Computed example of a mutant assay.
Amino acid sequence: MGKSSRKWITHYSSSHDILLVGEGNFSFSACLASAFGTATNVVATSLDSEETLLRKYGSDIKTTLEELKELGCSVMHGVDVMTMSQHPLLCHTLFDRIVFNFPHAGFQYSRDKSSKLHQNLVRRFLRNAKELFVENGEIHITHKISYPYSEWEIEEVAEEEDLFLREEVEFNEGDYPGYVNKKGSGPNSNRTFAVGLCSTFKFVKTLSKKTRKKRLAKAAEFAQLNASSMSLS
């Protein structure tokens, strides 16, 4: 596809091979498909079966899935992000972008235990995703950054999996027309939730020399400011 014929919506292009995981009502997939005018470059997956999705989201989800398939999207159900690199329909495919919006392990435990479960979900997702994206590709996690979500420490988890933060950008729902986030689990699974302070984190296998140089310069500047502060105290 030539550069002039590419279509973009924020970070995503019709020339990217995109894997969307943990889709709830598939409205994010539908948003990308609408922006591109096609979804032949998109694989959209959910952990739930189609029957479960119908129970959660009603007839609207059936219409959305039909429209995605008509636009050429590959829709897959029963895909666990923690084991997806072994999935027979995914394990031989590489993607330019792998996207997980608002990962969440559920509400069934105390906050402290849930935090560890959320971290484990993110860790195992990243461990699997890094087997499925191209050398210069990106893994995107859109995530709340206020407390208690900040305690998930997803950047540190990624580094433990040999992945590095290329960029953190503010997430705005308005950038994705038609996207409606859903809780996805529990008795209120069909309800939306307030996004609040939220970012999209872009993880890569290696940082470019330019990015590494900028990071080192910022670290040196911070160290100098810290040293100056200490000397004045």
Score class of each variant (00 low, 15 high):
H92T: 02
C73E: 06
Y149S: 02
S110C: 09
V75N: 07
F107L: 05
E66D: 14
D175S: 09
R166S: 06
F133P: 00
K130L: 12
R123I: 08
G178F: 13
F102R: 08
G186E: 05
S74R: 09
K69I: 04
F107T: 10
L117S: 02
E156C: 12
S114T: 15
E135C: 09
L163A: 03
E173G: 15
I139M: 12
K130C: 10
E160C: 12
K116I: 13
R127G: 07
R124Q: 15
D96V: 04
S114D: 11
D80C: 02
E153R: 14
F125L: 03
I154R: 04
V122E: 10
H104R: 02
K116Y: 02
R123D: 14
N136K: 15
Y176L: 07
M76F: 05
G106M: 03
A158P: 02
K113S: 12
P103N: 10
P148S: 09
E161N: 08
N120F: 06
E170S: 14
Q108F: 08
D162W: 12
G178E: 12
I145W: 07
S115Y: 07
E153A: 06
I139L: 04
K182M: 03
K182C: 01
M84A: 01
C73R: 02
Y179M: 13
F171T: 07
L71Q: 09
I154S: 07
E135Q: 11
H77W: 13
D112L: 13
N128P: 02
Y149T: 05
Y147C: 06
E167G: 02
L94G: 03
K69M: 02
A158N: 12
I141H: 02
N101E: 04
M76S: 09
Q108N: 13
F100W: 00
F95Y: 13
W152F: 07
Y109M: 11
F95N: 05
S114M: 07
